[in-house]
């Protein structure tokens, strides 16, 4: 933030989830990330994968944080990137679903093994791998649920955690098909 703005009233920063459709090209992701680092914006989570093979399009789900002025800037700046086709602000648009996948390895022996399985069951986590001294659980859902689960697992033993970052989509029957057809 510029020093010129020091005396401005502090506006609250909120978390926003953006959903982008971009060309699946080398360099696109680098441009998006470079924008955030170059202009000092926050990235809390970012996921990207191809969603349309024929048109070679990828979706980037992105969670960021900032004042409403900053968020508007981020959206306009993203739209300036040539291979970025669609920028949607899911937080602003209405109800939406945010989901994430976590793989949690827990090294555990003795009584805590039963406890771990009980917690996993409560969270509806799947057990993907078992040895006499470890488990690998898979859990999907809201980031906050994943946080709670990983915290509990940590208290039971040595853990290794891999999370995908948030993937998001709006609720209801609205789709982007029309917008995509213009590309």
């Amino acid at each position: 933030m510029s020093i010129y703005q020091k005396n401005e009233v502090k506006e609250v920063e909120t978390s926003r989830t953006l959903s982008l459709v971009v060309d699946n090209q080398p360099g696109t992701l680098a441009r998006v990330i470079g924008l955030f680092s170059g202009r000092g914006y926050n990235i809390e989570s970012l996921t990207v994968t191809e969603i349309d093979k024929i048109r070679s399009l990828s979706r980037i789900s992105l969670v960021t944080r900032g004042t409403s002025m900053t968020i508007e800037q981020i959206k306009s700046q993203l739209l300036r990137i040539v291979p970025v086709h669609i920028v949607r602000d899911l937080t602003l648009e209405g109800p939406f679903i945010k989901s994430e996948l976590a793989l949690v390895k827990l090294v555990v022996k003795g009584a805590n093994r039963v406890e771990a399985l009980r917690i996993a069951e409560t969270f509806r986590a799947r057990t993907l791998d078992v040895t006499l001294s470890s488990f690998v659980f898979e859990l999907t859902g809201k980031p906050s649920k994943l946080d709670a689960f990983t915290d509990l697992m940590r208290s039971l033993g040595d853990t290794e955690i891999s999370r995908t970052g948030v993937s998001a989509i709006s609720r209801g029957n609205k789709t982007e098909t029309k917008l995509l057809d213009q590309i």
Partner: peptide, 27 residues
């Protein structure tokens, strides 16, 4: 151009025409 922002044209209504949306409301 603006100098110190919090003292920039303090009592004015402002209109901005620009081809680049990100220039509007940037600073």
């Amino acid at each position: 151009v603006t100098g110190r922002l919090n003292a920039f044209a303090p009592n004015s209504k402002k209109i901005h025409i620009d081809v680049d949306k990100s220039s509007i409301n940037k600073v």
